Simulated scan of single mutants.
Amino acid sequence: MNRPLLGIVWDLLSTLLLTIVGTFIASAPSINLLSSGVGFISGISASYSGRLDSLFANNSSVGVLAICVAEGNCQIDGSKTKNYFQNIDPGNGLINRGWCSDQGRGGSNLANADAGCLSRTKSRIPRLFERMKRVGLNPEQHEEAFVNAADLWNQASPRVSDAFPTTYRAALNRGLQGQEAILWARVEAFRDDSGELSAGNINLQRGVYIGLFGICANPQNTYYQTRLQTYPLMSERWRWSCIALDQNRRVKAIQLVFASIQ
């Protein structure tokens, strides 16, 4: 299949997935999220096997590759894109390096960036494990969802990855499965304590575009502009669709990595 046709098919499939998941928005019940505090959960029992640890055992592990591809820093075969070496974060202007887009934490040294990415991600495994267990999910039976939670920890505010297990449980309870369940859960996890979807801020008069909402609202980002133009700016539907467009790309990237190892 030639590249233009492949791109059209990919876009159609993405639109279909967003449409299917989007039908659940209007009837979605209010989700009672667990506490969004970012402190460590006391009394964590790391009673899982080595399967979860192996996802992030080293910089060549499956979970690492999945997040690297979701960030646009790796290809499925593990080769690095130019963004891996350096890119400017479109949401906050920070300089990123390494497989996780490290927000400058590793300085200008790629080895430091990758080491920091791995250490930071591994430090969150016990917390994400515990939060999934709290809602009756065994992370070892939902490895792809678990990596999506880790990806949210890497991408967004800590409250988002903290909320994901609850929203994922809600998605499964609503009958969603696979990528549809993960996508719906990822979007819904962006709700703040007031129940509003929160992923950045914009000020059109001052030309301020911060976070994911800023990326979607920026007139220079025609990909988002053309797909969101039918919704009132910052309305619930606009917010949901903005987040979903970004999250859908990441969900698909992670799924492709898991599919490649089966």
Rank of each mutant, 00 (worst) to 15 (best):
I8C: 07
V9Y: 00
W10P: 04
L12Q: 11
L12N: 04
S14A: 14
L17H: 14
G22H: 04
T23I: 02
I25S: 12
I25M: 11
A26M: 11
S30P: 06
I31M: 06
L34G: 11
S35I: 03
G37Y: 01
V38F: 09
G43R: 12
I44P: 05
A46W: 05
A46V: 14
Y48R: 01
G50L: 08
D53Y: 07
V62T: 14
G63A: 05
G63E: 02
V64G: 00
I67S: 03
A70Y: 03
A70V: 03
A70R: 04
A70S: 12
E71T: 12
N73T: 15
I76D: 00
S79C: 06
T81E: 05
K82Q: 14
Q86V: 12
D89A: 13
G98E: 04
W99R: 07
W99Q: 09
S108F: 04
L110E: 10
A111V: 12
N112R: 13
D114W: 01
L118P: 10
S119D: 11
T121L: 14
S123P: 02
R124I: 11
R124M: 14
P126A: 02
R131V: 08
K133R: 15
R134A: 15
R134Y: 10
R134W: 05
G136T: 02
Q141Y: 05
A145D: 09
A145G: 08
N148Q: 12
A149T: 04
A150Q: 11
W153D: 02
V160S: 08
S161T: 13
F164E: 07
Y168M: 04
R169G: 07
R169N: 12
R174F: 06
G175M: 01
G175Q: 03
L176W: 08
Q177F: 11
Q177M: 11
Q177N: 15
I182S: 00
A185I: 05
V187F: 08
F190A: 00
F190M: 14
D192H: 04
D193Y: 07
G195E: 01
G195D: 07
S198H: 12
A199M: 04
G200I: 06
R206N: 13
I210Q: 13
G211C: 08
L212G: 03
I215Y: 08
Q220E: 13
T222S: 15
T230E: 15
E236S: 04
R237W: 10
V251Y: 01
A259K: 15
S260A: 15
